[in-house]
Design a protein around this nucleic acid. Structure first.
Lengths: 129, 129
DNA sequence: TGGCCTGCCTACCTATCGGCAAGTATGCAC
DNA sequence: GTGCATACTTGCCGATAGGTAGGCAGGCCA
């Protein structure tokens, strides 16, 4: 039984639901978005996605690869050279992320303000009113 | 040192980063997206966002309210009547989610296929190759 | 010979997320 | 007074996401 129906089938409740499962994970959207710029070596990607650990980066990349969003190309060289790029599917997904990115840029100040307020609001003893 | 810089300041690395923090949480995008249709009572929202628990729904709604994305209107009636709607900021965010939703709808079959394959791939003993 | 370079892997551990279920408030109908 | 309806709260508890740290491969150059 457990969580039941909604989980049982790959029956997504809507398109957004489907998308969310693909980009679930702290770093995936950032990875995808960064790869719009073109193929990228592992090291460069790691530098671009600030704060990500090796473990996470690799893991997310693997999942994205399994989901047909990115392609891994191994040059079979030493020292290792590998790069990652978007598949056509991945590119279309990346395009869908663009508005989110723009929204963030447009409202960054508001968002930053909200966040700092929220921290205090969390620390406050009782809700007012 | 630890995680350091990236966390220290509300300095988002990019617009996408900022957006992601606002919509972080399993249900937020779904909530926001559903509210495009207009104000909605708590109960209706819960029915719409399938699988969400009271605790989560309330919690996510509070955060969204604190972030200026949704507005809670309490009719001060008994039995309780409350509805939630998007602020202008929320509405613009919702618009940015539309492409994601469309992408999901357009590629739902591919996504579903990927997911079922991935489950087996995860169960497989050693990576092939 | 041995250290370097780069991508990757593994084990371990913790914090957070999120589900479950029971409880609260309030006015009204009975 | 009792119970009902709706929105919300709280505590507990398990799963899992994600961080840390250290190790490995293997040609090459010093």
């Amino acid at each position: 039984m457990t969580t039941s129906v909604a989980e049982a089938v790959p029956g997504f409740t809507c398109g957004l639901d489907a998308t969310l499962r693909v980009i679930a994970g702290k770093w995936k959207p950032l990875i995808i978005y960064f790869l719009i710029q073109g193929p990228c070596r592992y090291g460069a990607l790691k530098r671009a996605v600030r704060g990500v650990s090796d473990k996470m980066l690799i893991q997310q990349l693997k999942e994205l690869e399994a989901d047909g969003i990115v392609v891994r190309r191994d040059y079979q060289e030493v020292p290792p050279r590998v790069d990652y790029s978007l598949t056509p599917l991945g590119r279309s997904l990346a395009q869908a992320l663009v508005p989110l990115c723009n929204w963030g840029s447009d409202n960054m100040e508001a968002v930053a303000r909200m966040f700092s307020e929220r921290e205090q609001w969390q620390a406050s003893p009782t809700g007012d009113r």
